[in-house]
Design a protein around this nucleic acid. Structure first.
Length: 439
DNA sequence: TCTGGGGTCCTAGGACCC
DNA sequence: TCTGGGGTCCTAGGACCC
């Protein structure tokens, strides 16, 4: 039994049931009730309150399989409201940023903080962090602290599952024998980077607990699996291999995806075209926001993987662009070209999407000598479009190809039957008392 | 009837070249 | 006509994450 090193300290802070908590901030009536938040299309359950978990509702469950709880246990449900969660996330990250010199935002509801060099005990400091987010934003959080990111994640898991720690667990504050006990108690599939497939294979090698994996030769793991899992073994031993990517040295995003399931299956290419065009427009807007251009666009369409009595078909095609671009019109053109190639009639399509990749910095843009495209004009048109949409709301101006059919008639539109208001991002929807103050 | 969306990284294998 | 190995680059697909 050897103690984990203490020279480095990384904290993982994350919001408890983040989406649920965001909704409860603005609707306290939801407090103490079983509540679930649904994915796009009201398809799956993506966030559950403690009370909903207690009913045995697992993460990711298709909503229709949980609907009976609405009657039997007054289960409350909401469609997801990403504008709200995104905005609350920004606020949370800002509050947390004040507690460390280095912060890496890892997902909408969690970030790493580098606490190396801080005075022990770190658990007290972590409690302070929790108090602050609760006081400023009414968002409950948990904190896990360890010498590597992987151990910090694991510590966070322990903090969350064991109420006696009141939301904070730190390896450094833990006796070496207790450290070992925890590692022996936790299943290997809880480790960050070990998913379903890997854990099944690890079980075959008699590696069942975190402790087992920690004490396997990383070289052997590298040969049998990959460098990624070997790195995880090092991390579990307190040797930090995954470094902090804070905002300053954040690598640029490498691809932008926009895809969605349809409200109902569609069979006509015209409707697919509308959907694809609107996905391209959204992705291209993101592309311009980060001041990039792209060189490749991938289009994919697919039938439902769950449909029992129809053939599966899920083609995709990647179209190279002669010049890197961020012009929605050119991207839509290319996407249509691809769609025509892969489309086959007679199938019931349930989902489509596009991926922009080979992203480049707009500044390094190279124009093709032989191209007829007037770059400057293209940039101006796109800038104007983005500006109008920013000022007057999304989709004020868009390409005709995204469908001129009146709103609800668009078959491919999402279902979102029960969405809360945009409490923090739209003047017209912020809570009354607050709105009054500003008028 | 109803089953999410948006990312990252790595690897194996094919094409091509010398 | 027969016959080789090694390197690089690219892509598709798989695994993982939230």
């Amino acid at each position: 039994m050897k103690a984990l090193p203490t020279d480095r300290a990384i904290a993982l802070v994350d919001g408890n049931n983040f989406y649920v908590s965001c909704e409860r901030v603005f609707n306290p009536k939801l407090e103490g009730k079983p509540l679930v938040i649904l994915s796009n299309n009201d398809g799956c359950i993506v966030s559950r309150s403690q009370e909903a978990r207690a009913l045995g509702i697992p993460m990711g469950l298709p909503f229709f399989e949980a609907k009976h709880f609405i009657k039997s246990h007054q289960l409350q449900w909401l469609s997801s409201n990403y504008a709200l969660y995104g905005d609350m996330s920004d606020r949370l990250m800002h509050v947390l940023s004040e507690f460390a010199t280095q912060q890496e935002i890892y997902s909408i509801d969690e970030c790493f903080l580098d606490l190396s060099g801080h005075q022990a005990p770190l658990t007290a400091y972590a409690q302070e962090i929790r108090q602050r987010t609760l006081q400023y934003l009414r968002l409950p959080t948990c904190v896990g602290i360890g010498p590597s990111k992987t151990l910090a994640k694991l510590a966070n898991h322990i903090a969350k599952k064991n109420p006696q720690f009141t939301g904070v667990f730190s390896w450094e504050a833990c006796h070496p024998q207790d450290q070992t006990d925890w590692l022996k108690k936790i299943a290997v599939d809880e480790v960050w980077g070990v998913g379903r497939k890997l854990s099944a294979q690890l079980h075959q090698l008699q590696i069942h607990t975190v402790y087992d994996l920690q004490n396997t030769n990383p070289e052997l793991i590298r040969q049998r699996f990959s460098v990624v899992l070997a790195r995880t073994v090092h991390e579990l031993n307190g040797i930090s291999c995954l470094h902090m990517n804070d905002l300053k040295n954040m690598p640029r995003q490498q691809q932008i995806i926009s895809s969605k399931s349809f409200g109902q299956v569609i069979e006509k290419i015209e409707l697919l075209q509308e959907a694809i065009a609107s996905y391209v427009c959204r992705a291209a807007e993101k592309l311009r926001q980060q001041q990039s251009t792209c060189q490749l666009i991938t289009v994919f369409i697919r039938t439902s993987p769950f449909a029992k009595n129809s053939l599966p078909y899920k083609p995709q095609i990647t179209i190279p662009l002669s010049i890197a671009t961020a012009d929605s019109r050119r991207l839509v053109q290319a996407a249509y070209f691809g769609l025509k190639h892969i489309f086959r009639s007679g199938y019931r399509y349930q989902k489509a999407g596009i991926i922009l990749s080979e992203l480049q910095d707009q500044a390094q843009h190279q124009n093709d000598l032989f191209s007829q495209v007037n770059l400057q004009q293209s940039t101006q048109v796109m800038q104007t479009m983005d500006l109008l949409n920013q000022r007057y709301g999304a989709n004020t101006v868009t390409l005709a190809s995204t469908g001129l059919t009146a709103g609800n008639a668009r078959h491919w539109r999402l279902r979102a039957n029960q969405k809360s208001q945009n409490f923090t991002t739209r003047w017209t929807e912020i809570p009354y008392a607050l709105a009054n103050r500003h008028t």
